[in-house]
C-alpha cells in the first residue's frame, strides 16, 4: 500500500471540471456558485440566537435574519455544506487528511496562524463590501461577463501582487 498523498490534478483539467460544475449550476439553477454569503448567514444565525433584537435593528443583519427569517434557509448554505463534504471526500480519497499548518520555511506555526486569522478577517470584511468572494464574484460573475465582477477580479489580484512583497517571509 502506498501511503503517499496522490498528486493534484493538472490545473487545466481541474479548471475544465470546475467550469463544467459552474455551467451545470447555471443550467440547472439559473445562478452560480458562492461561499462567503453562506458564511455571513452563519454569523447572522449565531448572533440571532444570542440577541435577535440586535439583528432586527441592524439593516445589514436584518436583510438576512430580521424578524422570522431564518438566515440558514438558503440555497448557498446547502451548497457550502456540500463544499465541505466534497473537500473532505477528495482529501480522504487522495490520502490528504491530516492536521497540519501550511506555511513557508521562514515563519513559525504561531506566526502563520496569527496571520491566517488576520488575513481571514480582512478577507471576510472585504468580501461583504465587494458583494461576494472569489467564487461568487470572480468565477460566477467572470463567466457571465458581469462588468463589476471583472473590475473586482482585476483589483483583487493587483492588490495581492502589490502587497505580496511585504509578507514574503510567510511564504517563501
Amino acid at each position: 500500500m502506498n501511503s503517499q498523498p496522490e498528486k493534484y490534478w493538472s490545473p487545466y483539467l481541474a479548471g475544465f471540471v470546475l467550469g463544467l460544475v459552474l455551467l451545470a449550476t447555471f443550467v440547472i439553477m439559473g445562478r452560480g456558485l458562492g461561499a462567503s454569503g453562506a458564511m455571513m448567514r452563519s454569523v447572522v444565525y449565531a448572533v440571532d440566537q444570542v440577541t435577535p433584537a440586535h439583528i432586527d435593528n441592524n439593516p445589514y443583519f436584518a436583510k438576512y435574519g430580521g424578524g422570522d427569517k431564518n438566515p440558514l434557509d438558503n440555497w448557498l448554505v446547502y451548497e457550502v455544506l456540500g463544499v465541505i463534504v466534497g473537500g473532505l471526500l477528495s482529501g480522504l480519497l487522495a490520502k490528504r487528511l491530516k492536521f497540519k499548518t501550511d506555511k513557508g520555511p521562514r515563519i513559525s506555526v504561531k506566526g502563520r496562524l496569527a496571520l491566517a486569522l488576520t488575513g481571514g478577517a480582512i478577507m471576510g470584511f472585504g468580501a461583504r463590501l465587494a458583494l461576494g468572494c472569489t467564487s461568487g464574484q470572480a468565477l460566477t460573475g467572470g463567466a457571465t461577463l458581469a462588468l463589476g465582477s471583472w473590475a473586482f477580479m482585476m483589483v483583487m489580484f493587483a492588490s495581492g501582487y502589490a502587497i505580496a512583497y511585504f509578507v514574503r517571509k510567510q511564504w517563501i
Binding site: 456558485l33 461561499a35 462567503s36 458564511m39 463544499v83 501550511d102 496571520l115 491566517a116 486569522l117 488576520t118 488575513g119 481571514g120 478577517a121 480582512i122 478577507m123 471576510g124 470584511f125 472585504g126 468580501a127 461583504r128 463590501l129 465587494a130 458583494l131 468572494c133 472569489t134 467564487s135 464574484q137 463589476g148 465582477s149 473590475a151 473586482f152 477580479m153 482585476m154 483589483v155 483583487m156 489580484f157 493587483a158 492588490s159 495581492g160 501582487y161 502589490a162 502587497i163 505580496a164 509578507v167 510567510q170 511564504w171
Partner: peptide, 20 residues
C-alpha cells in the same frame, strides 16, 4: 466592488486563502 477587491487582495496574500 473595487474597494472590496483591494481589501480582499490584502487578505488573500496575508491569510493565504479565499473563503471557499
Amino acid at each position: 466592488q473595487m474597494l472590496g477587491g483591494a481589501i480582499m487582495g490584502v487578505g488573500f496574500v496575508i491569510g493565504g486563502y479565499c473563503p471557499g
